[in-house]
Design a protein around this nucleic acid. Structure first.
Length: 481
RNA sequence: GCGGGUGUAACUCAGUUGGUAGAGUGUUUGCUUCCCAAGCAAAAUGUCGCGAGUUCGAGUCUCGUCACCCGCUCCA
């Protein structure tokens, strides 16, 4: 009964409006017109996100004796990002051609132009442009200066010959900010574009304090920031997002074996722990590898807008630790005390997008069906991730039913997130809970007053059974495992 | 980034040739003593995305801007 007959935009629109109406996700700073690609988690959203993170954290740290969790700072010594390659490989002045929609490095265009002039024997022109170019690089606004040269020299795109230029913009995926009161380059720090580096720089700290032996892992949940050019698809691609990452350090040569083991474990987590439909998960093998990787697979999910990545499992080799050894001058080797071997460990990374997973679960759970001839909207969350675990509803709010229901609610609230609702007809209250994915409703009714049992109404089937009021907590305990 | 579309109540939307803002749903309160969005009565909620301009007068026309959606493009 999934709404497969609906167009993708329809489903996404419904999800976005449901998410806002019921307090899962709001646009950020909405009263000021919002901010591109930023969203806030509301009361239900933040509870659900916490459930996701707790599940991940427990299965990745507590269930593994050789994995420890950390929470590194978002801002780090800027040299970290030089070592990781983030500064050098994505910090370029770019210019777009509006007609051909191609993008070029502005500095490359000018350098090529100078070379071309030399080849054509126009040494004077080449020298002149070259002088401008050198000055431009040191100018207060190099982008503007590059742009002025490109326009003045009528530089055209090398491949298309077109020259319908936009402004020159600095394209850096990292957000910069200034630490300290002075806004000069000396105080520049970055908001981390990935959480992984916080783990790598703490390799020895964690190994030492937790007496870790290879193979071991370090896990972390935290925010990362990317100044994306393309934003959109609700919370799928945000500039501020939360990663759930684990870096697993292994002996060189054993990385493939470890990689396969993690692939299997991570895939199964989605199906077994989160209850995502297997048919909606897909593997994607990277053919083009990032500079640090020797093997990379993504777990993708069938969103209404396409099949997109929710987790990457990458074999990162010893690239990161090696880089940090070189840039920091600190030895990043691991010493095996038994075999006396010394080596820089290889790393297998599992990196999941928390917000993407949130969205995947929302999409996966969205269901429209018919109960007694009436259409209903329901979020069929697994009970572990459902934000509200149960609702307590007095059939009638006045009198003894209301009092008993309040007592039951208060009792359950010690342990579970439960809602109390006495407004409107009982049917309407069930539908309210269906819409936010609450697995169970306990209704205090006439029979409760006679024999202290309540009606348990289950979300998925709308079926009812009776359970003793004293056993409600045990019932939930059992159902929510 | 480019092109197209959209923006009015919490949600979905209407709003005529420019003349002081509407509906349905939802929410709240009361009644109804209730097991799947029932009914009756009442109420609250609006920077008409934002800013300029034209006009005696702008939700409506013009320009700019922001946000979202679709397509393309890009993507460590």
């Amino acid at each position: 009964m999934k709404s497969v007959d609906q167009s993708p935009e329809k489903v996404m629109n419904k999800l976005v409006s449901l998410a806002k109406r019921r307090g899962f996700i709001y646009p950020s700073s909405e009263i000021y017109g919002g901010l591109a690609s930023c969203f806030d988690y509301g009361p239900l959203g933040s509870e659900m996100k916490k459930n996701i993170k707790d599940l991940w954290w427990n299965s990745m740290t507590r269930k593994h004796r050789n994995i420890a969790g950390i929470d590194a700072s978002i801002m780090m010594n800027p040299t970290v990002w030089e070592a990781s390659g983030h500064v050098s490989s994505f910090n370029d002045p770019m210019i777009d051609d509006k007609t051909t929609k191609r993008r070029y490095r502005a500095d490359h265009l000018i350098e090529n132009h100078i070379e071309k002039l030399r080849r054509e024997g126009k040494e004077d022109d080449a020298h002149r442009v070259s002088t401008y170019y050198e000055r431009a690089s040191d100018a207060e606004d190099p982008n503007r200066a590059f742009y002025d040269i490109i326009i003045a020299e009528e530089i055209k795109a090398p491949d298309t010959g077109s020259s319908d230029w936009t402004e020159v913009r600095q394209f850096n995926l990292m957000f910069q900010c200034n630490m300290g009161a002075l806004a000069d380059s000396s105080g520049i720090v970055y908001l981390r574009p990935e959480t992984a580096q916080g783990i790598f720089v703490n390799f020895h700290n964690v190994r030492e304090s937790n007496r870790m032996k290879v193979p071991f892992g370090i896990a972390q949940i935290g925010k990362a920031f990317r100044n994306e050019i393309v934003k959109g698809n609700f919370v799928f691609r945000m500039v501020e997002f939360e990663q759930m990452e684990m870096q697993y350090f292994v002996k060189p040569g054993t990385q493939v074996e470890s990689f396969e083991a993690w692939r299997e474990e991570r895939y199964n987590w989605y199906i077994e722990k989160l209850g995502i439909e297997k048919e909606k998960l897909h593997w994607y093998k990277h053919d083009k590898l990032a500079h640090y990787a020797d093997l990379a697979y993504d777990i993708k999910f069938e969103f209404p807008f396409g099949i997109e990545e929710i987790e990457g499992i990458h074999s990162r080799t010893d690239f990161d630790l090696k880089q940090h050894q070189e840039f920091s001058g600190k030895n990043m080797e691991y010493i095996d005390q038994i075999t006396k071997e010394r080596y820089i460990p290889y790393v297998v990374e599992t990196s999941a997008g928390c917000d993407r997973l949130f969205l995947a679960l929302l999409c996966d759970a969205y269901t429209e069906d018919v109960v007694d001839g009436e259409q209903r909207t329901m979020l069929k969350f697994s009970s572990k991730i459902a934000p509200v675990k149960a609702a307590v509803l007095p059939l009638m709010k006045k009198g003894e039913m209301g009092e008993k229901a309040v007592r039951l609610h208060d009792e359950l609230a010690d342990k579970f997130l439960v809602q109390y609702d006495d407004a409107g007809s009982i049917g309407k209250r069930y539908r309210r809970q269906d819409e936010i994915g609450t697995p169970f409703c306990f209704t205090v009714d006439h029979e409760t007053l006679e024999n202290n049992t309540v009606t348990v109404r289950s979300r998925d089937t709308a079926q009812q059974e009776r359970v003793s009021i004293s056993k409600v907590q045990a019932f939930l305990d059992e159902q929510l495992v």
